[in-house]
Amino acid sequence: MRTYKTAKALQKALPKDKTIAYVPTMGALHAGHMALVEAAAQSHDVVVASIFVNPTQFNDETDLDTYPRTPKSDAALLKKHGCKYLYLPGVNDIYPNGTEHSAAEGIDFGPLTATMEGANRPGHFDGVAQVVSRLLEIVQPTTLVLGQKDYQQVAVIRAMVQRLDIPVSILVVPTVRAKDGLALSSRNKRLNKKERVAAGTINVQLAAVAAGLRAGWPVDVLEQLALSGLGQNDLLDPEYVQIFDGDTLLPYLDGDNVRELVVATAVQCGPVRLIDNRIVNQSNS
């Protein structure tokens, strides 16, 4: 695996006649990231990954400062799982004209950013669109590979790609979970033992909501039951549980005909904010 710290060097090295799959990450890599790399390698000639902790998508300075950084072990994992090129830039290489400039500036994402993460983390998706548009400009991949865990982020990036007419396909890989069902996340490393056990409740509640939806239970009842169930654990502080249309991200109304029905949550567990979601297969979808 070859490592490059500048966009210029990476662009010079990348082949022009190969299919390129690109996996953007913020590091502290785990099996979930490796699932993205492996999925990319199965159907493309070349896999490129990047590690960049993007400051413009953090609305909490403490979260940015404490975000785990493990570049040496990350590089070893990527090499082991088939990554051929690693882009490891600094802030000045990503934003040579400063962080105020964004190719995605002015895009109105409408309801895609009005709820859930968009409502709870003001400016977060502006930063996501900013950095992903820049990274795609640098790498120019055939396919962008993303994880389902960040469901709302995927929807925003899809919309950005369409609005900016970026010639790239998007491949979404299912969430990888621990044995107790907790979605793998770089932030999980900051949980102590008691918090880690408590975090397993998140998947239990999402699974219960999914089962309730399949059985025809009302949306508002299921959301409240899940919030209550999460809140019963003293180590968990749920921000939201929302059931929504996977295409529009608008709240789901009982009986709506939707292609994909999703339940998502954000929960504060000790010092860490965790997000997760479940896609629900509906007979009317």
Rank of each mutant, 00 (worst) to 15 (best):
Y87K: 06
P71M: 01
G118V: 08
I107N: 09
H101A: 15
M116W: 01
N92K: 14
G106T: 13
F109E: 07
N92W: 10
P71V: 05
R121L: 02
A75S: 11
N97G: 11
V91C: 09
D126W: 00
T115K: 12
A114Y: 03
F109Q: 11
F125R: 01
A75F: 04
T62M: 06
T66N: 12
K84M: 08
Y85T: 07
R69W: 07
A75N: 02
Y95C: 10
L77D: 05
A103R: 15
H81M: 02
G127F: 06
L77A: 09
Y87Q: 08
L88W: 12
L77K: 13
N92T: 13
E105F: 11
N120R: 02
D60P: 02
L77G: 04
D63P: 03
S73C: 01
A119W: 00
N92F: 11
Y67C: 05
H81Q: 10
N59D: 13
K84W: 00
T99G: 06
A76C: 01
S102Q: 12
N120L: 09
C83A: 14
G106N: 14
Y67L: 04
F58C: 02
G123Q: 01
G127V: 09
L86F: 08
R69S: 14
H124P: 04
Y85A: 09
E117T: 04
T70L: 13
E100I: 14
H101C: 12
E100C: 14
K79G: 11
A76I: 06
L78R: 07
K84D: 15
P96Q: 02
G123T: 00
G90W: 03
T70M: 06
A119E: 11
Y67G: 03
Y87G: 07
P122N: 00
F58K: 01
L112H: 06
A104E: 09
S102K: 11
L64E: 03
E100M: 11
D65C: 03
M116V: 08
D65V: 06
G118A: 07
S102V: 13
E105P: 11
Y95N: 05
S102E: 09
S102C: 05
K79R: 12
L86C: 08
E61R: 13
D93L: 05
A76S: 10
I94A: 05
Y67E: 04
R69Q: 07
H101R: 15
G106A: 13
Y85N: 07
H81N: 14
E105G: 15
G82S: 10
L78S: 05
L64W: 00
G118H: 02
A76L: 09
P68F: 14
A119D: 06
P122F: 01
G118Q: 04
Y85V: 07
C83I: 10
D60R: 09
D74Y: 11
P71A: 04
Y85D: 08
C83G: 08
G123D: 01
K72A: 13
D93A: 05
R121W: 03
N92Y: 10
R121M: 01
L88K: 08
A103I: 12
F109I: 13
C83W: 04
A75V: 02
N120A: 02
D93N: 14
A119Y: 00
L64H: 02
L88V: 15
T70D: 10
K84A: 14
D126A: 12
A104S: 15
L78C: 09
E105Y: 13
F125C: 08
P71Q: 06
